[in-house]
Amino acid sequence: MSSGLVWFCVVLGLGAGVVRRRSASVALVAVQSLLIGLAALGIGSGGGTPEPVAGLALLAKAVVVAALLGYAVARTRQPRPIGDDAAPALNGLVMLAAVAAVIALVPDGPDASQTALHGGLALLAIGLVIAVMRRATLFQVLGLLVIENGVAVVALSGERGLPTVVELGVVFDLAIIVAVAVAFQSRILGAFGTTDAEAMRGLRD
């Protein structure tokens, strides 16, 4: 993957973490996933060896997961977007701080472009911050997807990526997990009257 594409994916991740509406965030993560899938096929990647099987699987995942999340958004519409404890700007700052910390902590590698390694780690940090700081439960799924996209960025950029069998399995597993998470969304709304994670704080010791 080209450096420009890697950092564009990181910017999309940041955007997904700061936008207010779930639908906008789903769209940004879907675009991110599609770009990574296309890059795996060698389209618009600015070099690198095309990986047709992984690329097609990633594209299929992008489409299926976006459709599932779009369905979840439509099924769990609420009168107004769920507010967050922190302002979007503060969320963005926390994400940037986490990105800087993770990149500083993880050493450089001999067998991958540093940009891809740093981009993948940045997406890991962004995904974790989204999952922790955003209150709408769907954002926790989006955080997971951003982390998985970070994994794909690193895997596609080295001379040796993940074995194809494992990559296909990862895509399949992820689609199942997202499908289960989508099933949870309607049930959470039915039981709590909202999909705000703050409402789910009944289990405390």
Binding site: A112, G120, L121, V151, A155, G158, R160
Partner: peptide, 9 residues
């Protein structure tokens, strides 16, 4: 999983 990918890298 990211750890596994980094292991390969």
């Amino acid at each position: 999983l990211l750890g596994i990918v980094l292991l390969v890298v």
